[in-house]
């Protein structure tokens, strides 16, 4: 078990994060922390640095500053070990793979198995569980590239989930999904969090963001505001960050974000 028994370190602690992509300074001194178990949504205007933040935590882009996982610097953790602790699903990754759906999700076991070719029973179980949770078990023998956008999206989320990492980073998981599947995904992610997982999602749809536990609002490469999704201060911050072109109101079923 990582971490000290007496002092509980946050799962992820980011300090003064600077990330430069090409010639653009995308993240400019971002600092935040996320605890487990929690469902965090990272929101903000286009170009605020949301995807980049997730990529930095997954060590996929070079960065300056400190990112600690349970008190240990990410730079000190070896790639396979880090892959077992942090699972990532990207927004613009390739969807042309000719592999079967089951084989795609089986790749999630790579951090646990390395280059070994034969998969154990444990791996098979995890893959079946993930396929089942995302309701794509019936598609497992189909070719990934020939699925519809929504089906591919659910397979990719299953792939990220089957890693069973304590931290799961999902970039725009609700993209391509129709409303019923979006609702199913909300339920599935909530269940994962209840089982102790920390999930950080980048979300464009503010209504979906309001259904998560914690909102991290980014603007211009820094954290603009962080707070619980129920808190009115968070709602006012959201309205301010989007130039008051949105309004958060209460309805019978919860909070809703209206555009004006």
């Amino acid at each position: 078990m990582l971490g000290n028994v007496c002092v509980k370190s946050p799962l992820i602690e980011v300090q003064d994060l600077f990330v430069k992509l090409g010639s653009k300074e995308v993240l400019q001194g971002l600092s935040t922390r996320f605890d487990s178990p929690k469902w965090v949504s990272v929101i903000g205007a286009n170009g605020a640095g949301k995807s980049t933040l997730l990529k930095a935590i997954a060590s996929l882009v070079p960065f300056e500053g400190q990112i600690h996982f349970n008190g240990i610097s990410l730079k000190l953790i070896k790639p396979l070990e880090r892959a077992r602790l942090v699972s990532w699903m990207g927004q613009t990754e390739s969807r042309l793979s000719g592999l079967k759906v089951r084989d795609v999700v089986m790749l999630s076991r790579y951090p646990h198995r390395g280059r070994a070719q034969l998969d154990s029973d444990c791996d098979e179980e995890e893959v079946t569980r993930a396929l089942d949770r995302l309701h794509v078990l019936n598609l497992q023998d189909q070719v990934f590239a020939r699925l519809s956008g929504g089906e591919q999206q659910r397979v990719l989320i299953a792939r990220a989930m089957a890693v069973r990492a304590p931290l799961m980073l999902l970039d725009e998981p609700f993209a391509f999904l129709d409303p019923p599947h979006q609702a199913e995904l909300v339920t599935t992610l909530r269940e994962e969090v209840l089982q102790g997982q920390c999930v950080i999602t980048v979300i464009h749809d503010l209504n979906l963001a309001l259904q998560t536990d914690w909102i991290c609002l980014l603007a211009k490469g820094k954290v603009f505001f962080e707070g619980s999704s129920d808190d009115t201060l968070t709602h006012r911050a959201m309205e301010a960050a989007f130039d008051h072109r949105v309004k958060v109101v209460q309805t019978q079923d919860g909070w809703v974000c209206l555009t004006q």
Binding site: A58, L60, A83, S87, W88, G114, R159
Partner: peptide
């Protein structure tokens, strides 16, 4: 090639995804 074949499978999902799975 068989020794590193699994890494090629991971690559089919995209370079960043492969990297996130621990592929060097």
């Amino acid at each position: 090639a068989l020794r590193y074949a699994r890494a090629l499978d991971a690559l089919s999902l995209g370079e960043l995804t492969a990297k996130s799975l621990g592929v060097d």
